[in-house]
Amino acid sequence: MKLSEVKAILNAEFLAAETDDLNINTACGCDLMSDVLAFVKDQSLLLTGLINAQVIRTAEMMDIVAVCFVRGKRPPEDVIELAKKSGIAVLTTEYPLYTACGKLYEKGLGGRGSAQTL
């Protein structure tokens, strides 16, 4: 799925690195960074309700290409700057985590252990 599709499905807004044609192969919805670090997949999207700098650092370590903040959350400016520096695309959506994940899953974006990636 293209990041532009993710953006449309979630009615989301770009906060950093507008890269519409980025390929997203899998997604992960999580508020526990160590769980994210246990999950290794290429070209992933991370959906989370946390908005601190460690979300971006975690994404950087995992080569996660895009982060979407849920429930309309907006991280502080320095966190967005860090994402820009790391070349990670950042979006924000009004949907809560469960709903945002469900919407993407329904449209065919699988996660680890899902039918799409098995």
């Binding site: 670090l37 290794v40 601190n52 700098a53 460690q54 650092r57 975690t58 950087e60 370590m61 995992m62 080569d63 320095d78 790391s86």
Partner: peptide, 30 residues
């Protein structure tokens, strides 16, 4: 706390610049 991870971030960049394989870089980074 907001600076936590700067060392790992810097070292990961060095490994990438050295051209080490992606799986090695990832094992180190995590």
């Amino acid at each position: 706390f907001s600076a936590a991870g700067e060392a790992s971030s810097n070292f990961k960049l060095i490994l990438k610049q050295l051209g080490l394989p992606a799986d090695i870089v990832r094992k180190v980074a995590i």
